[in-house]
Amino acid sequence: MTAAVRQGDPALLDTDLARRLLAADIPARLAFVAPDGTPRVLPINFLWTGEEVVMAGFRPSAKTRALRARPAVALTIDTAGPPPEVLLVRGRAEITEVDGVVPEYETMMRRGMPADQADAYLGELRRRGTPMERIIVRPEWVGVLDFQTRFPAAMPDFLTEAP
């Protein structure tokens, strides 16, 4: 199915590669434009809901001020390989202010640290009433690269041909 679906089609989210990367406990890289017009890329924890990539941050933040001003973003979720596996997502960031802990953030933290550490960390955030921001991106453009069946478009032919 992967080869039949063109790069850019959100149906690529249904590929094994995309599902695996969206479920992985690895950070995404969020690319956006800062207020000064320069590009930024930040590693950020995420959770895939089946419709949205959910991220979170503490408010107020320079990151969400920039996202509100210029909501067009790109995300990359990838492995080092070999061969590398890459999921590319483009969309628009939407931010909601949350009083307390963003529920998806709790899930992200619990999958990435031992239970006792997560309990202590999240308990302290709640005790302090730390305000957060929930950031979502609904994929509008999706690409996958597995360097076995899908390669970057500009890759030389001799590198993608079978011996």
Rank of each mutant, 00 (worst) to 15 (best):
M1Q: 09
M1P: 10
M1N: 05
T2R: 07
V5C: 06
R6G: 09
R6K: 13
G8L: 04
D9T: 09
A11Q: 12
L12D: 13
L12V: 10
L12K: 12
L13T: 13
D14H: 11
D14Q: 14
T15V: 05
A18Q: 11
R19P: 07
R20M: 05
R20Y: 02
R20E: 15
L21E: 04
L21A: 04
L21C: 02
L22N: 03
A23R: 13
A23K: 05
R29P: 04
R29W: 12
A31M: 07
V33H: 01
A34P: 00
A34S: 11
P35Q: 09
D36F: 06
D36S: 07
G37K: 11
T38P: 00
R40V: 09
L42D: 12
L42Q: 09
I44V: 15
N45H: 03
N45T: 06
F46W: 05
L47E: 13
L47M: 00
L47R: 13
T49D: 10
G50I: 03
V53E: 06
V53W: 08
G57H: 00
A62S: 09
K63P: 01
T64A: 07
T64N: 08
R65G: 14
A66K: 12
L67Y: 12
R68F: 10
A69S: 14
P71T: 06
L75V: 08
T76E: 15
T76V: 15
T76Y: 05
I77L: 15
D78P: 05
T79W: 04
T79M: 03
P83R: 05
E85C: 02
E85G: 14
V86C: 08
L87H: 06
L88F: 14
V89W: 04
G91C: 05
G91R: 05
R92S: 13
R92H: 15
T96W: 13
E97D: 15
D99R: 14
G100E: 07
G100Q: 06
V101L: 15
P103D: 05
Y105W: 12
Y105A: 14
E106D: 14
E106V: 01
M108E: 08
M108A: 00
M109H: 02
R110W: 10
R110L: 09
R111M: 01
G112Y: 01
M113C: 01
P114C: 02
A115L: 04
A115W: 04
Q117F: 11
Q117Y: 14
A118K: 08
A118V: 11
D119K: 07
A120N: 01
A120R: 15
Y121A: 08
Y121M: 12
G123R: 01
E124Q: 09
E124S: 05
R126M: 01
R126Y: 03
G129R: 03
T130R: 12
M132D: 11
M132Q: 15
I136E: 12
V137E: 08
R138D: 07
P139R: 05
E140K: 02
G143A: 14
V144P: 10
L145P: 10
L145N: 08
D146W: 06
F147H: 13
Q148E: 15
Q148H: 08
Q148Y: 00
T149F: 02
F151H: 13
F151Q: 02
P152A: 02
M155A: 13
D157G: 04
F158I: 07
L159D: 07
L159I: 11
L159V: 12
